[in-house]
């Protein structure tokens, strides 16, 4: 229980840092550390495959994509954020912490959730037999993403004229 609380606190602290840090690269790195904590939590919850995906894809690949985008869009005059936003964040955070603590417990008893029943078989069986349609949808989503990126980076007539 103590380790889980430490991991959850680490996750929330690094997520908070990701929005509070001024430097975007540091923000992206702290998001990656938060993903690492989330992956470790998944391992502790008995979901190793989700943990591996979280660490390799979200903490690795997405951080690289963020770093690339930040490098490609770097400019001297950064976007000025409102200073008040960061000052009042702790106030709102503590307020939400109190409300969350008061409401969540009673909410859990009132909201009907999934029926608790032990499941048999292996992860592969569940993924390939029960959630086959999800896999088809995943392939579709990946293709849609690839096509969208290709469409966004295609060269237009103006770009070709500039190159010449």
């Amino acid at each position: 229980m103590v380790i889980q609380i430490i991991l959850l606190c680490g996750l929330v602290i690094f997520s908070g840092l990701a929005i509070l840090l001024r430097d975007l690269i540091k923000a992206a790195l702290s998001l990656a550390v938060a993903s690492l904590f989330l992956g470790l939590i998944f391992f502790r919850l008995g979901a190793p495959y989700a943990g591996v995906f979280e660490i390799s894809v979200v903490a690795g690949l997405i951080t690289v994509l963020f770093a690339l985008t930040i490098a490609l869009t770097k400019k001297e005059d950064e976007v000025q954020e409102n200073r008040l936003v960061k000052v009042i964040f702790p106030l709102f955070f503590i307020l939400f912490l109190v409300i969350d603590g008061l409401v969540m417990k009673s909410l859990l008893t009132k909201v009907p959730a999934l029926p608790s029943a032990p499941e048999g078989g292996s992860f592969g069986l569940v993924l390939w037999k029960q959630r086959t349609f999800d896999l088809v949808a995943q392939v579709g989503v990946i293709f849609a993403g690839v096509l969208a990126v290709l469409a966004l980076f295609r060269k237009t007539g103006k770009d070709e004229e500039k190159d010449e």
Partner: peptide, 26 residues
């Protein structure tokens, strides 16, 4: 994933989380 783990449906929750991560990357 936490709801899946608590309700003894961690395999199903795990597969949903993986689907979610793939959608997120895209």
């Amino acid at each position: 994933v936490a709801t899946g783990a608590v309700k003894n449906s961690v395999l199903l929750a795990q597969s949903l989380a993986i689907t979610y991560i793939v959608v997120e990357v895209s």
